[in-house]
């Protein structure tokens, strides 16, 4: 079958683009709160204030004059990440994993000298990586010390966990695993593997590539069913807390797992996509309705822990 009927999709509670835009985003996400997630520096400051775990911010370069002080500033740091605050599509992110004398080391092993770092920050400041070329600021944050539990599940890099949070309730989760075909990118329609994660237990449910189910990772050959996220309730609680922080009713939280610090929010998204439904082989709508019903019951706003408990209890597959 090439195409399915709207009736069937509705029966399965699949949310389409228009429903997401008109109702989920349109009615729950106030435009004035968008900068809280679109500007990563703002997200970070808000998160630190709300005691939500994020990779620690080391510093911010706001003006070209700051580039001269970079060397001195970075003297104490071995591993760090420099990224544009309003970058798009992962552009302009420079990862430094260590030192080789005066020079900095990239994950690939190649070296960057001090001038290279300065030029990169300068490029960020002049808006080379930001949408529409607007001047930006460069954030320097500590490098996440990725946990090894996801080794072998991804072709390159370390996968993050995407949790969709509706009005503070985690409703669906997945992880995106890059493949050779997706060129190391975690973009599903470029050929990355999407793995739905059970909200109740944190283990893999269902894996798809190009919308077709699969058992093992096409490049690493690891059985995708073995994927299990440790400390799962912590992930959910972190995602749930992002609701209070951003006041966005429909939100996507990208969470990574640090060896020592546990789950950290890497990024938030006010317009999370719908591919998560394909990865879970389940529609979002019924869960959103369940949340609405639950909210109608209580008179006071439930705490993040209560919401997580509700989700874990109700959204098992």
């Amino acid at each position: 079958m090439l195409i399915t009927s709207p009736k069937r999709l509705r029966r399965r509670g699949i949310v389409g683009m228009n429903l997401r835009n008109v109702v989920y985003i349109g009615q729950n996400n106030q435009r004035k709160f968008y900068p809280r997630v679109d500007d990563k520096l703002q997200t970070k400051i808000l998160a630190e204030k709300a005691r939500i775990a994020v990779p620690r911010l080391l510093g911010v370069a706001r003006y070209q004059s700051h580039t001269k002080k970079l060397r001195e500033f970075l003297a104490q740091e071995d591993a760090f990440v420099i990224k544009p605050s309003k970058g798009s599509g992962g552009k302009g992110i420079l990862v430094i994993t260590g030192r080789d004398g005066e020079n900095y080391l990239k994950p690939s092993g190649s070296q960057v000298d001090d001038r290279g770092i300065r030029r990169h920050v300068s490029d960020i400041l002049s808006g080379l990586f930001s949408l529409g070329g607007k001047p930006d600021v460069a954030m320097i944050e500590e490098l996440v010390n990725f946990s090894e539990v996801f080794d072998g599940f991804s072709f390159e890099g370390v996968p993050d966990i995407r949790v969709i949070v509706y009005k503070g309730y985690p409703v669906m989760a997945m992880t995106r695993l890059s493949t050779k075909e997706s060129d190391g990118k975690a973009n599903l329609h470029q050929g990355a593997v999407g793995v739905g994660i059970d909200i109740a237990k944190g283990h893999a449910l269902n894996a798809v590539q190009h919308g077709r189910p699969l058992e093992v990772h096409p490049d690493t050959g690891r059985n995708l069913k073995e994927l299990k996220v440790p400390d799962w309730p912590l992930f959910l609680e972190l995602a749930a807390k992002a609701y209070e922080m951003t006041e966005l009713g429909y939100l996507g939280a990208d969470i990574v797992l640090d060896k020592e610090k546990g789950p950290l929010i890497l990024e938030l998204n006010a317009r999370p996509g719908l591919a998560i439904q394909v990865a879970n082989n389940f529609g979002l709508e019924s869960r959103v309705i369940a949340v609405e019903k639950e909210l109608e019951k209580g008179s006071r706003a439930p705490a993040p822990a209560e919401r997580v408990a509700f989700s874990m209890q109700n959204f098992a597959l």
Partner: peptide, 13 residues
């Protein structure tokens, strides 16, 4: 739904 979504979500139907 958009017409294209009937194709996109076809496996889910």
């Amino acid at each position: 739904y958009r017409l294209s979504e009937l194709r996109r979500f076809e496996p889910m139907g």
